[in-house]
């Protein structure tokens, strides 16, 4: 076994769970996530020469994220919407997908949170997953998502505001109004 391969196995392969978790949250789907992770690890193996040491997790996650977005662009271009990272609340896209609070889910916080997170637009979902589930620093997230730290900050703030709104629809947050279509059939 070559030294480089041994290093790869020791420093990159331990982060397969993190890689899969990110891919799974970005693709919403087990099989696609597996494909993406396998592809990403192949790339990682190829680029391992450029790994400068240090923490293998953000390094691998950066490749996974890149592979994910390439895959989504190819297979589900609708997922990737251009985001304007300004602080104007009006530009926050509404959570896509199903309304997160069906009657069955109402009592199950876990289901609610998973659905709310899954429904976030991808740019917000990825920063929140990297922050809360991977516990990465703003700097590491900025490197992985390829945006400035300031953008990570606004996206995280926005992601949490959207989460809170999805989780507490009745008590309109005093935080700020985020534009979001009313549920079908509701009059304003």
């Amino acid at each position: 076994m070559t030294a480089a391969n041994r290093r790869f196995e020791a420093e990159v392969l331990p982060h397969l769970d993190a890689a899969y978790n990110l891919a799974r949250w970005l693709t919403h789907n087990d099989e696609d996530a597996q494909d993406v992770v396998q592809e990403a690890v192949m790339r990682a193996l190829r680029y391992f020469g450029s790994f400068r040491g240090g923490n293998g997790r953000p390094w691998l996650l950066q490749i996974v994220r890149h592979t994910c977005f390439a895959w989504l662009k190819e297979n589900r271009p609708g997922e990737i919407v251009a985001l304007e990272d300004n602080d104007d609340a009006e530009h926050v896209p509404a959570p896509a997908g199903d309304e997160p609070h069906t009657a069955a889910a109402r009592n199950d916080e876990r289901v609610q949170i998973n659905q709310a997170l899954a429904a976030l637009p991808i740019a917000f979902r990825e920063v929140l997953v990297l922050r809360e589930l991977e516990d990465l620093s703003y700097k590491e997230i900025a490197a992985i998502a390829d945006v400035p730290v300031g953008t990570v900050m606004s996206r995280l703030a926005r992601a949490r505001a959207l989460m809170r709104q999805a989780l507490t629809p009745e008590s309109r947050p005093a935080l700020r109004a985020v534009v979001r279509p009313l549920p079908n059939g509701t009059q304003s």
């Binding site: 397969l16 769970d17 890689a19 899969y20 978790n21 799974r24 949250w25 087990d30 996530a33 597996q34 992770v37 396998q38 916080e109 876990r110 949170i113 998973n114 997170l117 929140l128 809360e132 589930l133 949490r160 989460m163 809170r164 989780l167």
Partner: peptide, 18 residues
């Protein structure tokens, strides 16, 4: 919210097959 997401959101570990 932070606590809720951290403790309740699914963490998807890599499947054995992968």
């Amino acid at each position: 919210l932070r606590e809720a997401v951290r403790s309740r959101a699914d963490y998807h570990a890599a499947p054995d097959a992968l």
